[in-house]
């Protein structure tokens, strides 16, 4: 166990009669990328905004970098960096001015020049904010989150509303930060994002954490099965395939066998043994691991993007 950079215990938040967050707990270690995955309105943003000191909590305990966001909001804000949802900058502020302005608010600063270079905004340094493309605005938002070389970064839906190519650009940036061992809390409703970028994920639904662990753990724990698709030189009966180790279901599709396995390594070993004994041969093999979407469906009976 490393040092917990961030701790949340039994966090509760109401908006009037609506219970947005109902007893969320998790902790994030130093150098970890932690994802909050869930549908819109699940309470991810509210949770993150409480951690950033933007909102008050109703009950529970929260600590970020050892600070209580409600008691020491100013000290906390010196230590964190954030790219929030639905924020913007004045239309007629230039890129470089924005970085300089925000850098001036912090005791610890990075050179705005370096950030421009790193985020590919050098050519846009004198461009007004309202003349930037969506991807450039988001890159600037990420660059601005780094002006104080923060201990913890919060990215709230960093790729929402961006086209696929720009989204990949943002993934590359976040992966680079991950390699640098930055502590990052990331909220998303994209499965791909959580699986690709996060060390650990908390799946949130209706204000509660319904599953927590590494993407791999979550998938195996939820009983989600791996899809093993094989083509054989000679046909085999479905009954034999079903009796292979770990297999829970078999279907024949276009001459290929689609096996759903809970323990793919064992399934493959027993398949190969069986084929050898029968003098049969394996023509092709494809393995598709389950996604967190499957986990979400398993836990809630709904798709994530409803």
């Amino acid at each position: 166990m490393g040092n917990a950079m961030l701790q949340v215990e039994n966090l509760v938040k109401h908006y009037g009669d609506v219970q947005a967050v109902r007893g969320v707990s998790f902790s994030v270690e130093e150098g970890e990328v932690f994802g909050l995955l869930g549908p819109n309105g699940a309470g991810k943003t509210t949770t993150v905004e409480i951690l950033e000191g933007l909102r008050t909590l109703d009950s529970g305990r929260v600590s970020v970098c050892g600070l209580d966001p409600q008691e020491k909001p100013q000290e906390l804000k010196q230590e964190i960096g954030a790219a929030l949802q639905s924020t913007s900058l004045p239309d007629k502020l230039r890129v470089m001015e924005a970085l300089r302005l925000f850098a001036s608010f912090y005791k610890r600063r990075r050179r705005p020049e370096d950030l421009l270079k790193r985020f590919g905004l050098e050519e846009k340094r004198n461009t007004f904010y309202n003349q930037l493309s969506g991807g450039q605005k988001q890159r600037l938002a990420l660059a601005m989150a780094l002006v104080n070389d923060p201990k913890v970064l919060f990215f709230d839906e960093p790729t929402a509303g961006l086209d696929p190519q720009v989204r990949r650009e943002i993934y590359d940036i976040i992966e680079e930060l991950r390699r640098e061992k930055k502590t990052i809390v990331l909220t998303t409703h994209y499965i791909e994002e959580a699986e690709r970028l996060c060390d650990r994920v908390a799946i949130i639904d209706h204000g509660k954490v319904i599953a927590l662990g590494t993407p791999r753990e979550l998938k195996s724990r939820a009983g989600a099965t791996t899809r093993v698709e094989v083509r054989l030189s000679k046909p085999e009966s479905n009954g034999i395939m079903k009796n292979l180790e770990g297999v829970v279901d078999v279907r024949e599709v276009d001459g290929a066998y689609v096996l759903h396995s809970q323990r793919p390594p064992q399934t493959i070993v027993s398949l190969v043994k069986h084929l050898e004994a029968q003098g049969n041969e394996l023509v092709s093999l494809e393995i598709a691991t389950p996604s967190l979407e499957d986990v979400f469906i398993e836990m809630t009976g709904r798709r994530l993007r409803d």
């Binding site: 933007l54 100013q74 964190i80 954030a82 929030l84 924020t87 913007s88 900058l89 601005m144």
Partner: peptide, 17 residues
Amino acid sequence: MFREQGILRRFHVSPVT
């Protein structure tokens, strides 16, 4: 306008008071 466009929100997460 700053509030409607989320500009104040961006300042709020920085140490600006």
